[in-house]
Design a protein around this nucleic acid. Structure first.
Length: 608
DNA sequence: GCCGTTTTCGGCCCGACTGTTTTCAGTCG
């Protein structure tokens, strides 16, 4: 674990322990905010941990927290954390992760029953003693029990590539059930912001038929539990493993299998669509800043619209107060004298300083796939099938980059096989020529070459030279220390034959942390040698991750967005790679996959 | 504990839903 993460974890625990102790929520909030900001930094905070002035320049870091950072960087310890730990048993923090159990309830259980961990909590539920805790009744206990059960099934945030198709299908289901009764429908939340993992799915509906919509939602096939069932808000858990393709066929048994994910449905009047979409898209931090802006202007913002702030206790929309703006996001941002920005960058990380909406990369900008495998190594498509699929997508270029010899499990190619493969790719090109003799799509002969532990490549230079494109990727020794990893990857980046650093850290989301190199140094090396860093679009990788893309973009580093195609459907993952790029404020210029065939080829040849 | 084109002190986002309550506290997003 790098220093940033370790520091963020400590500060976050301080915040949580303060919450349990019932201390000032603004103080705990400040620690939590600092933790979040530090975790999102793209550079090693250790580089400036000796310089208090620089620390104070960071958002959300004041004198007190700066001192804690300096202390931790220098000694590996944080006195305040230790002192709080003396007072607050660690098990209480774990209890707080249970949905429905907040700091107040945990404190009450702790003080009343002396329960300090999950085992004690379960025991108190089983023997009924939990009912003696103030404000703890049978229904509340039942909910806690359900939540613990889900937690033990290994509930975690879901990959965006799993959540997105479910959201798409829920929306299709509601549309098919309700037809014209639905005026507008979309998903919001972290899914709309394109985050790499999704805690729950938010679906927003504008309709006058709230009751029928709620009913259709709560009775969807695959629903395993109804958590909330109000007039305008419902929450259910839905099985992810259900065969959603069969939803519309009547009379079939719907298996309720796989892990479940929570879906929230929010029903709003059509006039409030823009306000509601903003509100439920978040992020929370972005919304807080927007509301502060509203207050500064004598206005108040909620999910129903932007209203004059008359300081009345009852919400304005319930008193028939007319909104200043509410129908579209754009008009609300405009009234707040703020630039409308895309959902992916609404993280309160500098977007409010933008004078105009940035041009972020879009799926339609991508014209080339530069990382793809065939049956020669571990793919399921032939060279021709791969190229045909790329052509269908309107791409002008497809690079065939099968694995190199060290990737034995992936059937990597020995030099002699690679030479034959290059020939086969040249030959396949002949099938993609139009009547005037021009290629209908350009096939590039390449390789995804292993970066060995010490940073050397898996083929000799004279062989690499024969390839049109070289993607160098780390596949093993993915737990080596940060210093070695940095050295190893920089060596590959600087290699004169390498075009792209493939999935730079080798992480798998929710599965494996991967390498933890000094990203700032990698980016600097990549800028200098005009090597592109890859955003691997597979939803289990999304590597580079968003905050590193942001740092790379700031430095003017080239970026490649590639699907790492192994089978035909993998091209569909492009949307996740693009969203990750957008989260890093990536425009089309720096992304090599958006370039014209001519410009792309010139860049590739410049390394030959 | 941070922050400031109205403040260096006094603020700090807003509403729905639920459950346990006789008017509201806790949690969530």
């Amino acid at each position: 674990m790098g220093l940033n993460q370790a520091l963020a974890a400590k500060l976050d625990e301080i915040a949580k322990m303060m919450e349990v102790l019932g201390e000032d929520s603004f103080r705990s909030g400040a620690n939590a905010r600092a933790a979040r900001n530090i975790e999102a930094l793209a550079f090693d905070i250790g580089d400036i941990a000796g310089d208090k002035k620089k620390l104070l320049e960071l958002e959300g870091i004041g004198p007190k927290i700066a001192d804690k950072i300096m202390e931790f960087a220098a000694t590996g310890k944080m006195k305040e954390h230790g002192e709080l730990r003396e007072k607050v048993p660690a098990g209480l923090l774990q209890m707080m992760t249970i949905p429905g159990l907040g700091p107040k309830s945990v404190k009450a259980i702790w003080e009343t029953l002396k329960v300090t961990d999950m085992a004690g909590l379960k025991k108190a539920i089983d023997d009924g003693s939990i009912l003696t805790v103030p404000r703890m009744g049978a229904k509340a206990v039942e909910k806690i029990k359900l939540s613990i059960g889900l937690a033990e099934q290994g509930q975690q945030r879901l990959w965006i590539g799993v959540a997105m198709p479910i959201a798409d299908r829920v929306i299709e289901h509601l549309k098919s059930k309700l037809g014209k009764k639905i005026k507008k429908i979309d998903f919001a939340g972290s899914l709309r912001r394109g985050k790499e993992s999704i805690g729950d799915i938010d679906v927003l509906v504008a309709t006058n038929e709230a009751a029928a919509t709620s009913e259709a939602f709560r009775t969807m096939p695959g629903v395993v539990a109804i958590l909330v069932g109000g007039d305008t808000k419902s929450s259910v858990r839905i099985a992810t493993g259900v065969d959603l393709a069969r939803w519309d066929s009547e009379g079939q048994d719907q298996e309720k299998v796989g892990p479940s994910i929570q879906i929230d449905l929010k029903i709003v009047p059509e006039d409030s669509w823009g306000a509601a979409l903003m509100y439920f898209t978040g992020s929370k931090e972005h919304n807080v800043k927007l509301r502060q802006k509203a207050l500064d202007m004598g206005l108040t913002l909620n999910e129903y619209g932007l209203f004059p702030d008359d300081k009345e206790a009852t919400p304005p929309h319930q008193r028939g107060v007319k909104a200043v703006a509410s129908k579209t996001e754009e008009e609300i941002y405009k009234k707040l004298k703020t630039t409308w920005v895309q959902p992916e960058i609404r993280e309160a990380r500098g977007e409010f300083e933008l004078k105009e909406t940035p041009r972020l990369i879009e799926v339609e900008d991508i014209k080339a796939e530069l990382h793809a495998h065939t049956t020669a190594s571990d793919g399921s498509l032939s060279i021709e099938e791969l190229a045909a699929k790329a052509k269908e997508r309107g791409f002008h270029t497809i690079a065939v980059t099968d694995h190199s010899q060290s990737s034995v499990i992936a059937n990597g190619l020995k030099p002699e096989r690679l030479l034959k493969h290059i020939e086969a790719i040249r030959k396949a090109q002949e099938k993609f020529i139009d009547k005037s003799g021009k290629p209908t799509i350009t096939l590039l002969a390449g390789s995804e070459v292993d970066i060995l532990n010490d940073g050397t490549l898996d083929y000799k230079d004279d062989l690499l030279k024969q390839l049109d494109v070289v993607v160098a990727s780390p596949h093993n020794a993915l737990s080596q220390d940060p210093q070695s990893a940095t050295k190893r990857l920089i060596k590959a980046i600087k290699h004169p034959m390498v075009h792209i650093l493939g999935h730079p850290t080798g992480r798998l989301i929710n599965r494996r942390a991967g390498l933890d190199p000094d990203m700032g140094k990698l980016i600097a090396a990549a800028v200098e040698s005009r090597t592109a860093l890859e955003i691997n679009a597979h939803w289990m990788r999304l590597d580079l991750r968003d905050v590193h893309v942001r740092a790379a973009v700031n430095a003017g580093c080239l970026i490649a967005i590639d699907c790492d195609v192994h089978q035909g459907e993998d091209y569909d993952n492009l949307r996740y790679g693009v969203m990750t790029g957008r989260r890093g404020w990536l425009g089309p210029e720096l992304c090599v996959n958006t370039w014209t065939a001519k410009k792309l080829l010139e860049w590739l040849k410049s390394k030959r």
